[in-house]
Design a protein around this nucleic acid. Sequence first.
DNA 1: CTAGGAACATAAAACGTTTTATACAATGGG
DNA 2: CCCATTGTATAAAACGTTTTATGTTCCTAG
Lengths: 339, 339
Amino acid sequence: MARAQQVKIRDVAQAAGVSITAVSHALNGKGTLSEATRERIKAVAERMGYQADALARGLRRAPLGAIGIVVRSLDSLGEYYVPGVDVFQRTLGVLSAKALERGLAPMLVPDLTGRSIPMISFMLDGYIVLNPHRNDPVVELLRNRGIPYVTQGADPQRPEFQAWASEDDAASCRTVLEHFAAEGARRPVLVAGTDQNAWNLDSEAAYRAWCDEHGAEPRVYRVPEGAGVQGGIDAVGRILAEGRPDAVYALTGRHAAGVQSGLQSTGLDVPADVLVATGSDSEHARHSRPPISAIQFNPEATCNDLLDLLEQSIAGEPAVAHRRAATRFRPRSSSRRSG
Amino acid sequence: MARAQQVKIRDVAQAAGVSITAVSHALNGKGTLSEATRERIKAVAERMGYQADALARGLRRAPLGAIGIVVRSLDSLGEYYVPGVDVFQRTLGVLSAKALERGLAPMLVPDLTGRSIPMISFMLDGYIVLNPHRNDPVVELLRNRGIPYVTQGADPQRPEFQAWASEDDAASCRTVLEHFAAEGARRPVLVAGTDQNAWNLDSEAAYRAWCDEHGAEPRVYRVPEGAGVQGGIDAVGRILAEGRPDAVYALTGRHAAGVQSGLQSTGLDVPADVLVATGSDSEHARHSRPPISAIQFNPEATCNDLLDLLEQSIAGEPAVAHRRAATRFRPRSSSRRSG
DNA sequence: CTAGGAACATAAAACGTTTTATACAATGGG
DNA sequence: CCCATTGTATAAAACGTTTTATGTTCCTAG
């Protein structure tokens, strides 16, 4: 309980025979001390193993060297570990790693608008908000508090906010639809999630635009993210009831796996009768039978972008432009009729 | 840069027409205020959206509600994101999730003995050290600082420290060896990592004990964790040079995948000629050809144990006993000769 | 009528820094 | 010889809380 007594700035001052101010100035390169004194104090501090207390220092609004990461999709899922969902392994892992490499310790923080949030949450240097909803209350809170933040994806309600980065979801969607078309599909349907985040919104918009351009009737089915594979299976009934499509683009990997398995269990063949692809590569997608074509995210690029923007924002430079990272399409057997 | 001005305790006091002390006492349930005043102050604070400043409060040694997680295997790997290594998705993901559910924000912290560590690191309420080495300097540091911590696995050099939890690696090892024996293998070899952590040490000890009991000659090959699949492939040459084994237990999934593929490329058949199993299930193991039998960790149990112990430790109750979680063996085609 | 408690409330000290304002000595120009 | 300047160093204020010590007021017992 009682923390071992640390050496404090006062002790160093005493040992070096100078004032507290002198020590502070020497260590932080401020003030008007002589170079000799400065070096002497530094040596004493080093020898005594002095480390400034981050809290006391933070009280004077010095950066803590830590940022918060809040994963809105997990907040809305209600549980923070979902086996088979790649977000932990992919985005969150890469983001944490890249933050560490920049000397920023990443702290995972629960829904900031919730009841019992850790005291430290509002003291962090800045925030990265993954998968924010439109009009996200967490974003709103950060904004009101004046805490620097960046988001993954834009908020359509707030076009003036430009400190965001994401994969290019619209381009990903078009790539898949073009691929479907090249394989002869004319009536693709979209299976999206229910969260109102940029991924779902941008993908749907791109899908509708594509349908418009190609004279196809848009058919969008929404399945709660939390419904997982079973949600995909269940969606098949609704889809077939409105007419058999010749291709299905399911955004999440688990929905895609469910859709494919649902189609197969009604006697349809993938890819002969229906093409399938997903917007999120995962173990599910890779190892379904047949393996499901998938958009591979580019978390390295996106995470770097997010951290660049956040560091700018923390430094007080307002971000004037967002960034979009290119994704990569991995065609697999689920959507290839040709050999 | 300048943080938006928050409502401070002083403001609340003024608004409620009481002293600062009164507000503090009312909000923290201390002091001797009348119930009426208490409620009135609470209402005012609530209405004004007052939130105590964690730093100022922490200065008086109140817990921050955040814990540090330091992943020593990644520290020693030198990079914090390694595709295909399950540690992120498994232990770290589960641990973070479970910490959040307990109201503790998990912060990933780099090697605490390193150069530029975040200021906040030493202020956290406690630490979980994953995969500590024997005589780990990070553990040493935490101990000296008097910061509560728990470790994953014991330090053989420090038997008196009991605040640790882990999977039962020795039992896992024996399970695999018994399985090998049941399939007719008599001369199993062990491929371990080079890190001096409990997983490697305990597994090797259990392997040697088993060999001793069964009159087999122990053969241990060490491959750096960072060498990955290629390291496993390379190990095959060294193994075969000393005689063909009839079974290989490779602790890491990537080494196992490499070993299997190395064996196959010298013309040996798995499982007909050599059985293969790994101590760490992963996508690699599941989807090699043939799929590799694997020990499945029990991160839920281990992480709960670690957090239980840490909470005890933070509360000042010394942990007097460690915990071991049972693992589960998943036999697959790589080690089954029978149908 | 007063001493001694309750019951309630607050002033002031403390936490460990950084920052601002001030002090002192030495130097140099007039 | 005085004033302004420069080079050093420090005292004290500030950061926003919690905690400790100190008052009040009011009641009750003697």
